[in-house]
Amino acid sequence: MKNISLVFIFLISLNSEVNAQESIFPKGTKAPNVHHTGEIWLNLLFDADETFDFNIAQAVSAPGSKLNWHLHPKGQLLLITHGVGFYQEKGKEVQVVRAGDIIKCLPNTEHWHAASPDSPVTYVAISGNAPTKWTDTLTAETYNSFKVPEQAGQDTEQEIIELSKKKWQWMADKNTDSLANLFHDRSRYVHMSGSWKKDRELEIIKTGSIWYKNADVHDVAVEVFDDTAILWNRITLLAHVRGNDVTNEFTVTEIYKKEEGDWKLLDLTFSSVRDTHEIEH
C-alpha cells in the first residue's frame, strides 16, 4: 500500500476530535445484508488510482452488527474512531477495539470484525487495491460468546454476589453438602472466637454449635482479579450460639478462586464493626 503514510498520519491527527463522534465523514449509505448481519453504513472516501494504490472507506456499524469471515489480499488498516467493537483473526483470541485503536490486518489473513452488542463502532478502513474475499459465515453463537471486559466483569461480580447469597442460605439451612462443594479444600474461616479450616467449619454448621440462622445483607462490594474474586458484605447476623440467639453487625470478607470453571470459597472472615459502617465502593 504505497504512499499510505500521508493518509495514515492525517487520520491519526483527527483522533482527538472524533472520539466523541459517531463518524468523521458523512454516514454514507446502508449496505445490503450480503456479507454481514445488522445495520452497517458505508461511505467510500477514496478510490485507488495510478498514484495511490489503496482505497479508503468509512463504516458505521450499529450495536450487534457483524461482518462474516473474510480476507484482504493486499492487507488493510482499521482506524477505530468511535465506539467499541470486536476483531479476531483466525486461530487467535478476540480483541476488543475502541476509539483510538489501529488494527493492522496483514495480507491474506482471515478475520472478522464487528460492533459490540451494546455499542456502535465506527472505523476508517485503508485497504490495498484488491477485492475482499469472503470465506465463512460468522455465526450468532460465536459472536454472542464474547463480551467486552467491562461487561464480563460486571457479570462476574453479580455471579459472586448471588453465590454469596446462596452460601448464607445454605448456612442457615445447614446444607453441608452444598457448602462442602463450595468450600475449597484449603479454605479457612476466621470468627470472633477463633480460626479453623474446612472440616471444622462444616462440622460446626452440621451440629449447629453455631447456627447461622439469618444474614441480613446491607451492603456489598466485589473486586475481580482474573481467577480470584473478593467480596465484602456488611451484614446483621442472627446466630444461635451456646443456647442463645445473638445478633451482631459484621463486615464479612469472602475470597473466591475459580477452578475448572467453578468458584470455590477460599476464605471467610468476620470483622466486628459499628452499625454505622459503610463499605466504600
Rank of each mutant, 00 (worst) to 15 (best):
A57K: 11
K66G: 11
A221S: 06
D136M: 03
V220L: 00
I235R: 02
I235Y: 01
K2R: 05
P107C: 14
V34R: 10
T37V: 08
F52C: 06
N3P: 04
H35G: 08
R242N: 15
I235K: 03
S119N: 13
T142W: 06
R274I: 06
V252T: 01
F54R: 01
K197M: 14
A180G: 13
F270H: 12
I102F: 05
H82F: 09
L77H: 01
S5Q: 13
Q76F: 02
M1W: 03
D199R: 11
H70N: 05
A221G: 00
K174A: 09
E259C: 03
E223Q: 02
N248L: 12
Q151F: 12
V217C: 09
Q76K: 11
A125H: 08
Y123F: 14
Q21E: 10
V273D: 00
Y212G: 14
E259S: 08
F146H: 12
V252C: 00
E223C: 10
I160L: 07
K165T: 11
T176R: 03
I205S: 01
I24L: 07
A221I: 00
E162A: 07
S13Y: 08
E141F: 12
A180R: 06
L42T: 13
V18Y: 02
K206E: 13
I161R: 04
T109Y: 05
H277F: 08
A221M: 02
E203M: 09
L237A: 15
V97C: 05
F250W: 13
S271Q: 01
S209A: 04
V34C: 08
D155F: 13
K66P: 07
I160T: 10
D173W: 02
E254Y: 02
H82N: 09
L138R: 04
Y212E: 12
N129L: 02
I210L: 14
V60F: 13
P32W: 04
W41F: 12
W170N: 15
W196R: 10
A59M: 12
K104L: 13
S195M: 09
G243N: 11
I4K: 03
K104P: 15
F8W: 08
N214A: 10
L182H: 02
S23K: 05
E159T: 09
